[in-house]
Design a protein around this nucleic acid. Structure first.
Lengths: 148, 148
DNA sequence: CCTAACAGTTAGGTTACCTAAATATCAAGG
DNA sequence: CCTTGATATTTAGGTAACCTAACTGTTAGG
């Protein structure tokens, strides 16, 4: 009995959680549609900031397959925001590194997006902001458990 | 000074929040890719459960334009999960109603998805689950503030 | 009635994914 | 060395979900 109650509570939480997830996806889509750089491209660019990242690593971090990452990288390259160069240690690999323009674009996009989100968070009460803050590391943990 | 500190804290929270949003989008994508019914289609189906929903309302609720909603509705109709019928009050409008098969599909998909999410939430501590639960209504509020 | 506004569908295009196949390089064993 | 299997990326081709613009039919106000 007790165990079933726990299960029921968990399933109820799961249901609410799923609704929140769905809404968040829409929020994200909205946010993305108002910017030049998609959030996936911004993610690539950030990985390319320090020293350069490999295509496989970028794909893994983005949660997509390698060809999809390549596609975004090529777009960023055409936009002059990253450059692709041979990996000195492994000639099979490609290192993707941000250009100066790329670096500037990250700062710009980050600032704009943070201000947009901060504008929304600013309408919340302190308690609500605290609730969000407390939940964020849990979302991180959830994400990691889905990865595997 | 004080105001700027508040701004900085808000921007920092916004930054962490954005990272969580991005991760959640990936969790959602993963979840969707393992199911027959996309979460958008499941959303349509749920709106079609009680009495029937209009295409425009479905689109609004889904956060997409009307033609995109029509497209999903047609797919569901071809799969035998909804039927489209004239609105008795307004012949311009179409009412989308779930069939018996559609009703069953909702129950099935909901159960599967809830169990998947519950499986993840079950690995969390009680405190972590509480943190998630406390944050969910805030996400709801955020979503509403983005809608306008 | 006529006309503007509205509800949906159709047509055509874009973007972000995916899988499978091709290319190039690496590393380990014989 | 040289082959062979694994690894890193790109290319080719396809799908699904979205969009805007244009079209059809219906309603409702002047």
């Amino acid at each position: 009995m007790n165990i079933n109650q726990a299960d029921d509570a968990l399933l109820a939480l799961a249901q609410s959680f799923r609704e929140a997830l769905r809404q968040i996806v829409y929020v994200m889509r909205r946010l993305d549609s108002e910017e030049q750089l998609s959030s996936a491209q911004l993610g690539v660019l950030k990985m390319a900031l320090d020293g350069g990242a490999r295509v496989g690593g970028i794909a893994r971090n983005l949660g997509v397959k390698v060809p999809s990452a390549t596609e975004q990288i090529i777009k960023l390259e055409r936009a002059g925001l990253v450059k692709r160069e041979a990996d000195p240690d492994d000639s099979r690999a490609v290192r993707v590194a941000a250009t100066a323009a790329g670096r500037a674009a990250v700062e710009n996009a980050d600032r704009r997006r943070n201000q947009y989100i901060a504008g929304i968070l600013g309408t919340l009460s302190q308690e609500e902001r605290d609730a969000v803050e407390a939940a964020l590391p849990v979302f991180d943990k959830i994400n990691n458990s889905v990865q595997n």
